[in-house]
Computed example of a mutant assay.
Amino acid sequence: MLQQYRSSQEILSIIYSEYMKEVYEKLEESKDPSIIFVTDLVACTHKYHLRHLFPELTIRFEPAAILGDLVHSGLESILENRGFKTEYPVERKYKVKGKEYVLKGRVDAYNEEKGVVVEIKTSRSTQNLPREHHVYQLQVYLNILNADKGILIYITPDRLLEFYVRKEKIDIKSLIKMVIEDRVHPKWEWECKYCYFHKICPYRVGY
């Protein structure tokens, strides 16, 4: 019976092509020190500096990442039909210490009329939800877009959870300055374990 089946990579090659296309587009931006990503503001500041030196180390083709992308695409498609703009690009310029930096991000879903920002997260576990760095990232987007309400939606193997987040004032420029000056490493106690650069980072702690 099993002899009827042959190994195939036809769909896998499509998934790989689309995934790597996005990876390489972001990789080029990663090499530009004047570009700071929103995720840089909620992470270890040394990661931003290592990414400019060793950008290729961030490339990973893992099932968990693919699954997350597919979940995002599916839910974003539904939200588009409900009046949300998805994969909404966010870009703002800030001048820090006499130099101009571009802060870039991409909101999963945004309804400007209602002032609602949606961030979609996949997780293997429901422990400690909502996660602090996810809330922090959403707060950054709320401040940049001057939106009042954020929604964090978690999709896990056994639960669907949604959290409302009200905007709190954040000094974005100070966060950018902190990244540039490399003052916080790591930012979270678990961060080194999952970092692309843990094998070469002088600040690695915890394991």
Results as ranks from 00 to 15, higher is better:
97 K>H: 15
127 Q>V: 08
31 K>P: 05
34 S>K: 12
51 R>H: 10
72 H>S: 03
78 I>F: 12
30 S>T: 12
124 R>A: 09
56 E>H: 09
124 R>E: 07
78 I>W: 11
46 H>K: 15
45 T>K: 02
123 S>W: 03
129 L>K: 01
32 D>W: 07
131 R>Y: 00
105 G>C: 08
130 P>L: 11
39 T>F: 11
116 V>R: 06
45 T>N: 11
122 T>A: 01
44 C>F: 06
124 R>M: 09
30 S>A: 14
120 I>N: 03
40 D>Y: 02
116 V>L: 10
88 Y>V: 01
127 Q>G: 08
135 V>R: 05
47 K>S: 15
117 V>F: 14
95 K>P: 11
85 K>M: 12
29 E>C: 07
140 V>R: 02
69 D>V: 14
95 K>R: 13
128 N>Q: 12
110 Y>C: 01
140 V>D: 01
77 S>R: 08
69 D>L: 15
35 I>E: 11
66 I>F: 01
40 D>C: 09
30 S>H: 11
72 H>I: 03
125 S>I: 05
84 F>Y: 13
86 T>F: 08
131 R>P: 00
51 R>K: 15
62 E>M: 10
93 K>A: 10
112 E>F: 04
89 P>K: 10
122 T>V: 06
113 E>S: 11
35 I>C: 13
134 H>W: 03
68 G>H: 03
48 Y>W: 12
117 V>W: 15
77 S>E: 13
101 Y>F: 13
125 S>C: 05
76 E>F: 04
53 L>E: 15
138 L>Y: 05
78 I>C: 10
49 H>M: 10
54 F>W: 15
122 T>K: 00
132 E>M: 03
125 S>L: 09
80 E>S: 06
66 I>G: 00
76 E>V: 04
32 D>T: 05
46 H>V: 08
135 V>Y: 05
99 K>H: 08
137 Q>V: 01
87 E>P: 00
138 L>E: 04
114 K>A: 13
129 L>R: 00
91 E>D: 08
127 Q>D: 13
100 E>S: 07
76 E>M: 09
105 G>Y: 08
85 K>F: 12
122 T>Q: 01
95 K>M: 04
136 Y>V: 02
93 K>H: 09
52 H>A: 14
122 T>F: 04
54 F>N: 15
106 R>P: 04
52 H>G: 15
123 S>K: 05
73 S>L: 13
101 Y>N: 03
115 G>V: 05
102 V>Q: 11
65 A>H: 12
67 L>F: 13
88 Y>G: 02
46 H>Q: 14
